[in-house]
Design a protein around this nucleic acid. Structure first.
Lengths: 139, 139
DNA sequence: ACCATATAAGTGTATATGCACGGAAGAAAA
DNA sequence: TTTTCTTCCGTGCATATACACTTATATGGT
């Protein structure tokens, strides 16, 4: 039985549970799952802007600015000016950022694999179907 | 296709989307979905303690303490001493809290109904199955 | 009675998230 | 070309979340 009838509250609870799992798994690399996701997205999209990254992650742009600032302070990514448009700050991984991502990758894989094992085939299918349905809500 | 292979990132993204929806729907009552969930749980469990509420919501106890403090400052809930155990602070809704909950209930119902309509029967089933699978991860 | 352990609560610190707002720079319109 | 509009960006403020640590109180063993 669901502890709450509210789909939102239930989804938030599940997100907290998974976040704790992945955060713990990624801790040896000094990253949380939010930071890992940001760096991973940047590695695929660089050079990116705060706007493009926010859109890709469906995060408020200003949230992204804060998270980027934290990772920049740690030297994992860096911003550079765009010659063609002085408003834009281009974001890219630093060598340290790439190195940290490489160190975190197997930790993420272990967490992902453990989750899939714990869910079993039926749970995996259900999760995939639900995420697909929820992904189509906006736009 | 999922924008990320990470189940956790995808679930967090979906939780953000639903949170924005429900927060917007509940805004006329002056509540967010996290606060609504807390008050709703308290209405079922009162008199409750920070520990029991945290366990019920699968929230860290210290997170609950902060959220409770905010709602207490607004007069929606209140703490009282336990005669039998001076460590315990018993939490209960105030009349204003009950009133706010009543005002928020139809707003929550509208958001829930709209989500279910947007998901469709298949989406609803998928979400329910996924939440059930995820709820069995701990404990 | 006394001490060791267990339990309830709260605080310090940090990250994550989003809204409202303001500033700077490019683009379009007049 | 000046004005307006649009688009980037960042900050102020507020809530949500969790870990490490401390404090206060009970409880059980001796």
């Amino acid at each position: 039985m669901p502890p709450s009838p509210c789909h939102c509250a239930n989804l938030r609870r599940a997100a907290r549970t998974l976040t704790r799992r992945y955060d713990a798994a990624l801790a040896p690399a000094g990253l949380g799952v939010a930071q890992y996701s940001l760096l991973r997205a940047l590695s695929r999209l660089e050079p990116a802007t705060a706007g493009s990254l926010g859109e890709a992650l469906d995060l408020d742009r200003t949230t992204l600015v804060r998270n980027v600032a934290l990772l920049a302070r740690r030297g994992l990514l860096a911003a550079s000016a765009d010659a063609a448009d002085r408003r834009v700050r281009l974001l890219g991984l630093t060598p340290a950022g790439r190195q940290t991502l490489e160190a975190a990758a197997p930790l993420w894989e272990a967490a992902q694999r453990r989750l899939e094992e714990d869910l079993g085939p039926d749970g995996r299918n259900a999760l995939a179907a639900a995420l697909e349905a929820l992904a189509g809500l906006d736009g």
